[in-house]
């Protein structure tokens, strides 16, 4: 589009997304298992079970393997003196431009899986919106948070 942002998020993000995808998929496998079991007991139509299994298989492939890598390949960000630029999205590519003067505050967030891999997400809040940069190296996230909040403080335009 217009000069892609340059920085990528941590490669470990892939692993994290695969793990959390696997957890979600595992839950849906359990649900599917229960459904198949119930169908068996109540003598529901036979064709539903293989269909369920097929859907589960396909979505496993998508959620654990394909989507995380597509998502990672697309994710770019760049934080400059006066603005932040983000690019994300799998089928729909979304580009976001946030002027530094609009940033209200910055958070870093770390769930259990992220913590295990020494990663953290940075959430940038403006008066109207919130934007997340997922899965950065802990040190980088911390640095980014400092950098942004310093710059945001300098240029304080009221709403």
């Amino acid at each position: 589009m217009i000069l892609e942002p340059q920085k990528r998020i941590s490669v470990k993000a892939l692993t994290v997304w695969r793990i959390s995808g696997a957890i979600k998929i595992a839950i849906s496998w359990i649900l599917a298992g229960v459904a198949i079991y119930l169908l068996h007991i109540f003598k529901g139509p036979f064709w539903i079970s293989p269909l369920l299994i097929a859907i589960e298989l396909i979505s496993s492939y998508f959620i654990i393997y394909l989507l995380p890598s597509l998502r990672w390949k697309r994710w770019r960000y760049e934080v400059r003196e006066e603005e932040i630029e983000l690019q994300e999205g799998i089928f729909i590519v979304k580009r976001t431009l946030i002027p530094m003067v609009r940033v209200q505050h910055v958070d870093t967030v770390q769930g259990p899986i992220l913590r295990n891999y020494q990663l953290a997400s940075v959430i940038i809040n403006t008066a109207a919106t919130a934007h997340e940069i997922p899965a950065l190296e802990e040190s980088e996230a911390e640095e980014l948070r400092r950098f942004i909040s310093n710059l945001a403080r300098v240029a304080d335009e009221d709403v």
Binding site: G89, F91, I92, V93, R95, T96, I98, A128, T129
Partner: peptide, 16 residues
């Protein structure tokens, strides 16, 4: 311009 907070562009595969 001074009140615009954030600008977002979106393009899907078909739009591209």
């Amino acid at each position: 311009k001074s009140k615009l907070q954030v600008l977002e562009l979106k393009e899907s595969y078909f739009q591209r």
